[in-house]
């Protein structure tokens, strides 16, 4: 057995403690408005972890992530109205379907690098945006697209989580599993392959790494996480709106993952905070929510100029400096 697989690092421990606190405290104190905001934020944390991981481990810019969430959401809704599967089955199938879509996206993307890769993924997001706005999301209607006018049929949420509080816990649990999935990869053969690919593709190939396979795999994981988060979002809202999955949202989520710090677990959490919670806060304070975009802009400049590892990087570096200082002074 890989003995380094289960090693607990300080960063990992802080992440698990954060997840445990979020799991116990947030559902207990939030009112119904904040419950839905936090649930949505937890969903987007999972999606953001997918783009953050692709950027941090492989330097690949993916601007399709929110569009991929739409696919996961669409598949989950479609299955919900077609069959009597429990939610978990729909969730897994939606995640797997989106993973396959991630692989398809990888086909053209594998030939591209840098800006060109970003453009290809953005075009995919644009294509999805058009599909979603044309066909909308299933809501219990007949036919393949399953859309009807008027009221929406009920969506079956997870058996384990029938109340909003329980569902928030459920999403936090799933998001934590998503983080663990990424971390398990990072600590085993795929992580080593990715690290070498990022250093140099030629060096990776010379070390026997199948570069195409591992890059495709990375796209698949990002897709899997997007699909699962889309299905969870569908379950939390009971329906989906095409406006949620427009291509600028994908760009924004990626940019915020960089601002948050793509190399750390905290990065996607900060990204989702900025993306979902900050606008809600501004709203409750009676401030125009567009101010959020100004803050995003400042955050991006901050990341580009002074914080290459994002806000999370600054926090962890500060924490490290604080904890190692006493030892250094001895």
């Amino acid at each position: 057995m890989d003995r380094s697989l289960f090693r607990i690092t300080p960063s990992g421990a802080s992440g698990l403690i954060f997840a445990a606190l979020a799991f116990t405290v947030l559902p207990a104190i939030a009112g119904s408005y904040w419950m839905s905001v936090l649930t949505s934020a937890a969903c987007f944390t999972m999606a953001a972890s997918g783009v953050a991981f692709m950027y941090a481990r492989l330097g690949m810019v993916s601007l399709t992530q929110v569009g991929l969430m739409g696919i996961g959401g669409w598949v989950a809704l479609r299955l919900n109205y077609l069959f009597d599967f429990p939610f978990e089955v729909n969730l897994i199938l939606a995640a797997l379907a989106t993973m396959v879509f991630g692989w398809i996206l990888a086909l053209p993307a594998l030939r591209m690098r840098g800006l060109y890769l970003a453009l290809v993924t953005l075009m995919a997001a644009g294509g999805l945006e058009i599909l979603f706005s044309t066909f909308q999301f299933p809501n219990g209607g007949v036919g393949f697209w399953g859309v009807k006018i008027g009221s929406t049929d009920p969506f079956r949420g997870p058996m384990l989580a029938q109340t909003p509080e329980a569902f928030l816990r459920y999403v936090i649990g799933m998001t934590t599993l998503g983080f663990l999935l990424i971390e398990a990869h990072r600590r085993t053969a795929p992580g080593r392959a990715w690290a070498l690919i990022r250093k140099s593709e030629a060096a990776a190939m010379a070390a026997g790494v199948n570069v195409t396979l591992y890059k495709t795999w990375a796209f698949g994981i990002a897709g899997l996480l997007a699909g699962a988060s889309g299905a969870l979002l569908a379950a939390s809202l009971g329906l989906l709106d095409d406006g949620t999955f427009r291509s600028p949202e994908s760009i924004l989520l990626f940019a915020l993952a960089v601002v948050g710090g793509s190399r750390y677990w905290l990065g996607p959490v900060i990204a989702a905070f900025l993306y979902r919670i900050l606008p809600a806060l501004l709203n409750t304070w009676g401030v125009n929510a567009d101010l959020a975009y100004v803050i995003f802009g400042i955050g991006l400049l901050h990341a580009l100029i002074t914080a290459p590892n994002g806000i999370a990087g600054q926090i962890f570096e500060a924490a490290q400096a604080l904890t190692t200082k006493p030892r250094g002074q001895k």
Binding site: A193, A195, L196, K199, V209
Partner: peptide, 23 residues
């Protein structure tokens, strides 16, 4: 390679292990 290709974020051990991963 002319410029050695060691992944900065892998340990020395992992940099060697990667060559064995596909076996």
């Amino acid at each position: 390679f002319q410029k050695e290709q060691i992944a900065d974020d892998l340990t020395v051990f992992e940099n060697v292990l990667v060559q064995l991963d596909h076996r």
